[in-house]
Each structure stands twice: as C-alpha cells, then as structure tokens.
Design a protein around this nucleic acid. Structure first.
Lengths: 239, 239
DNA sequence: CGTCTGCTTGAATGTGGTCAACACACGTGG
DNA sequence: CCACGTGTGTTGACCACATTCAAGCAGACG
C-alpha cells in the first residue's frame, strides 16, 4: 500500500467566499450571494494527500466534486493493469458526473488537493430548477467533451514527438488560464503519468523530452520545462 | 470533388409525430404534446446523401441537429490530412453543440441521412427555461463524454486485435439499442472509416478481420460480420 | 469489356516497446 | 558520517507490432 500522507478531513473553518480563488471558473461561479449561501451549506470541504483517491471506477457515484486546489489525475484501467489517464483536473474543474449510477473512471490526488464535495441527491435537487446552473453544467460537459475529442486525435494519429509537444503546449495553455502566461511550464505529474496520458511508455516520454532538449526547443528543469522556441514549438504541436 | 448524390432538401411532408421511430431516444423524447408541437415548428427536416457534409470543423456553429435516420461519421483532421474519426452518430443522437461558436469537428453522412435541424438561437431560447430539456442535454453530454473516455482507453492502450474486437462488440451493443440483439453486425462504414476510428491503417484493420475469421471468432459477410463465439469475443474486447 | 473503388494480401521498413543497467535524490538507520 | 534502501528518471541494445509500399482481386457500373 502506498503511504497516505494525511487522511481526508472535513475543514470547517474553510469558507469559499474568502478562500476560493477559482470561484469565477468553477461550477458555482455565477450564483448570486443568497443562492451561493445555500449552495455552500450543502458542501463539504475535503482535503486529500498525494496519491489518495477521491473516488474509483465502478464505485457507486454518491458525490460530485468541484476541485479548488491542487491537481488530480483521472484514469481508467484495463483488467491486466494497463492504465489510460483521460485527463488532469485543475482548480475550477467539476468531477464525478457519471452516465449511470457508478463512476466511469477513477480520480486521485497528485499533490495535495482540496475539493468541494456534494452529495449527488441534494446537488441534483439544487440544480434541477436552476436553468443557469444547468446551462453552466452543459458548458462544462461540452468543453470536457471537446478536450476528449482533441485527445482522441492525439492518441490515434500523432507521433510520439507530436504527442509530447502537443501535451506541453496544451498544458501550458491550461495553466495560463489560472496563473497567467509563463515560459516555464510546471509539470506536477510524473513521467509515468504523462506516458499514460499520451498512450506511450515512460521510456519513450523520457527519450522524447531529451530529444526536444537536444533540438533546443525546451530546457528540462526540476518539476517542469522551460519553452525556448514557442513559435517552432507550436508548429510541432499544430492542430 | 466527391459526387453528392442528392442535395439537402427540406421535407415539408415529414412529421416527427408519425415517422420518428427514435423519438423516445432523442433529445425531444420527454416533451409533452403541446411543447413538442412548438419544438417541432422550429425544426427543419433535412436529408443528406452519401458523403454529404452536415457541417464542418471551424464553421460558425449556427445549427444543432438531431439525427433521425442513417449514420454519420464525426471526425477531426490534422493539417496534413491525417484523420481521426471521433464517433459514429446513430438515430437519436444529438449533434452540433460546440464549446465556442464554431464546430469543433466535422460530420458527414455515411449513407442516406435524415436530421431535425434547429437554429442555435431559437433552440437555446427554447431550452433555457426548460430544466427537463437541460437535464436531458446533460445526460446526452455525459454519455458522450463517457464513450469518448472509453475510446481514449482503446486508442491509447489496446493492441490492434483488441481494438477491432472491442469496436465490434461496442458497435453491436449500440445497434442493439435500436434494432434489438442480432448475431450479424452490420457495418455501414468502410474499412478506412474503421481504421480512422481505431487509430490504425486500413491494411491493419483488414488483416485483423481476416485473422479473427481464421480464428473462427467471426465470419465476414457483405457489409458486416457475423459473430460466432460471443463469449470468447467479449473476453478479447473486455474492459 | 474496361475502369472504377473498396478490400485483401505480401514483403520490407521503422517507430515505439521491452528488457536491462545505471544515475540520482530521497529517506532511514547503523 | 556513510551504507543502504526506495522511487523516479535516463539511456542503451534489441525486438515486435503496426505501417509503408506494392501488387492483386472482386464487384459495380458505364
């Protein structure tokens, strides 16, 4: 068993109004003060340590989650252990909607993670007569779907080098939404995670990073890369 | 230019109430008689011939579509022409929701196709105060997303043989929702389409079909396959 | 007939995978 | 302090699976 740094705990002192930097991006971003108050009362704020599971595939989906802080990996497994990471969740992302009554994938924390957790029943009752919330849910789902389709194109039709380049470009853009544009792209996930996201092996990912560095496109730094030639880089990753 | 068998035409005589066999599965499946009447008045019924485009990636997304009859392929292209089919749309499927104001993929008819076409503006106005419709849209999006995630697992982590087997199993299940369970799976799409859906080449798909036939798992018939050993077959495709 | 188009088959090639060794940064405990 | 773990990432040599390139076949249609 991997060590679980600290177990999930409810944080009573945590108030979304004051702490939640990603509020405008999150599912609750457009609620008025009164409604947000009510919404907030349904929420449980929960922390997870590195590698701790938020939920697992095939579990009964009793909760939905709004990620506030940290990064989670979302993945599916084959019976023999092969893993495909279907996405990385960032602050503001909404997790846990399932087509049936069970989760269709697993999610666990990469570093330390904080979420707003809602029980499915109350959550659904809250949104079911609020068209604004439903529209926002639709936007989220549509955006997720579009990202998934981009990823299908990547997985099915791009070479290893294109996969890595496209990943770095896309990841940089997602981080830019939160932190603003930077030249140094931080990569909180490990090489194995990147490999499982891109449908490659860890060795190929490692080799490709080195190759991109030899070609003077990036510099590898601790927990990230620095992009040297954004122009040429975007071209490699071009859609 | 590929020949366009017959141009899209509006069918005034077509009434959804009488003809639309997939009504219960479609987006409009839960509308009451009065609301459905209003909904129907916004719809344009349009037919497309083989290979005709319903819409294309990057076009302004002015319409949404409910597929009534026939099959469409949904795909994305890379600048150099590589294609990834992201899905096949069947009767009852809902198409054309985009994250921005442009389509994020292209769709064209495989055989003859009939759709209900709605202009985006009126459609959004119709649903925006109907939580029931919004919930249904959410269900559709969630289901699509889940399929997309399954496909990512397939594209990233399965071998050619597993891809083909999984595709046939999944396709058979989707057809079963419409036509009921059958041993003969009809494949209206060509080998190239299957290849572009599975992230393979046409040669590999063809070889794999032959291999599965040699192994007495399937028999290849005109425009489809007959599944001989469902047990062993499902095992190959196992999630 | 001849010419399409779609599909299959064969042989050669190459990209990414597998297996193995090694480097390096962390611990922890002697 | 160093020896010794472990986990993570890099690199090399070899190999296999799927691709590429090329040819051939069957059916549809003029």
């Amino acid at each position: 068993m991997p060590h679980l740094a600290f177990p999930s705990t409810s944080l009573d002192g945590f108030k979304c109004e004051t702490h939640c930097a990603v509020r405008p991006l999150a599912i609750c971003g457009e609620l008025g003060p009164a409604e947000h108050e009510e919404f907030e009362r349904m929420a449980q704020h929960v922390r997870y340590g590195p590698k701790e599971a938020l939920f697992s595939e095939d579990e009964v989906a009793d909760s939905v989650y709004s990620l506030i802080e940290g990064i989670a990996r979302l993945y599916k497994l084959l019976p023999d252990g092969r893993r495909q990471i279907i996405g990385f969740a960032l602050p503001g992302d909404f997790l846990g909607m399932a087509p049936g009554n069970r989760y269709s994938f697993s999610a666990d924390a990469i570093g330390a993670v904080t979420v707003c957790k809602f029980f499915r029943g109350p959550f659904l009752r809250f949104i079911e007569n609020r068209p604004q919330m439903l529209l926002r849910m639709n936007d989220f789902a549509t955006r997720e779907l579009s990202l998934a389709q981009d990823q299908m194109l990547l997985l099915g039709r791009r070479s290893a080098e294109e996969k890595v380049a496209a990943f770095l470009v896309a990841w940089r853009e997602r981080l830019a939404r939160l932190d603003g544009v930077t030249k140094t792209v931080s990569l909180p996930m490990g090489r194995q995670d990147i490999a499982d996201f891109l449908g490659l092996t860890i060795e190929t990912v490692s080799r490709t990073f080195t190759k991109l560095e030899r070609e003077k496109l990036i510099v590898i730094v601790p927990d990230g890369v620095r992009v040297l030639d954004p122009k040429r880089f975007d071209a490699l990753a071009a859609a």
